[in-house]
Write a protein that binds this DNA or RNA. Structure first.
Lengths: 150, 150
DNA sequence: ATACTAAGTTTAAAAAATCAACTTAGTTGT
DNA sequence: ACAACTAAGTTGATTTTTTAAACTTAGTAT
């Protein structure tokens, strides 16, 4: 896959890696435990084999997925997320929670196991060791020379 | 746009609304203040006019974007996010932070304005009024009849 | 009256995704 | 030993999306 978006923007560049059709769903399905090719194909109803194959190769190259032999004879592989793949979890959760709040039909929700109340996403400052409100956060450019960096 | 993914999954259904190419970038660009058609077109380098037009129509139908007249004579409109559009902010932030941690070149970061340290995403239980670790969260199906709901 | 701008639309071409059939290597049942 | 089966893809044709470039329309500025 070539670089689709050329924007100097974390979001655009991240979407160059995980923004293609089916890609996030494949990663999420691996995360929740579907690990072989046919298991993924079966669970991602509607995906075609060649697309799944292409995506897995691309994601392996990009370092988000790795393959592991789980039986020799016959040689069989399973797909697993690398650490950077697993680090997409907040992305999945943010999408899941948006769906919980705004879809006509919600399939899943996330609750605090202690009290069974629904949780939200928030921001945390590891230095101050506390939750901070979005209004206390500055989103700043790391590129000093470029005023238009996003 | 027809429903692309048929999976009973919040993430898939959310991506049916915002997962098309350019869509999240358009929403993000509106969020950060680019509001007219040409402003969006200029800032989303590489997008074609017809695609931007199609996406804006679709997002308006889906209730994430609304238009507002800002001058009559000549009639000029600006695009704004609705509340459900603004609620995508955690999605943008999760993507931004993944990029901060994993892209070769990071353009942006988020810092706590008090201490200038980088913030992270975390989970918050509004009932217990505290941050909860992911390990204390259950992701549960809201569809009692379907064991395979995601 | 002519040029310019905003906000698109139209059409053709290129790229990506879907669909269905085929391949290959190993395994199991008879 | 041979046929049927399974996992994990690959190949090629068709359809859908996206891109690219030119065109439109209404109002403004010179």
């Amino acid at each position: 896959m070539k670089e689709r978006y050329k924007l100097p923007c974390n979001i655009a560049q991240t979407l160059n890696i995980v923004g293609d059709r089916w890609t996030l769903l494949i990663l999420h399905d691996i995360l929740i435990g579907h690990q072989t090719f046919n298991e993924l194909k079966k669970n991602l109803e509607g995906i075609s084999a060649n697309l799944l194959s292409d995506r897995l190769k691309h994601l392996e190259k990009a370092g988000l997925v790795e393959t592991e032999v789980y039986t020799k004879h016959p040689p069989r592989y399973q797909y697993k997320l690398t650490e950077s793949g697993r680090d997409l979890e907040p992305v999945f959760d943010a999408l899941l929670l948006w769906g919980r709040d705004h879809l006509d039909h919600c399939y899943k929700k996330m609750v605090h196991s202690d009290c069974q109340h629904e949780v939200e996403l928030s921001y945390y400052c590891p230095s101050c060791k506390k939750t901070v409100d979005k209004s206390e956060i500055n989103t700043i450019s790391t590129v000093t020379s470029d005023l238009y960096t996003r």
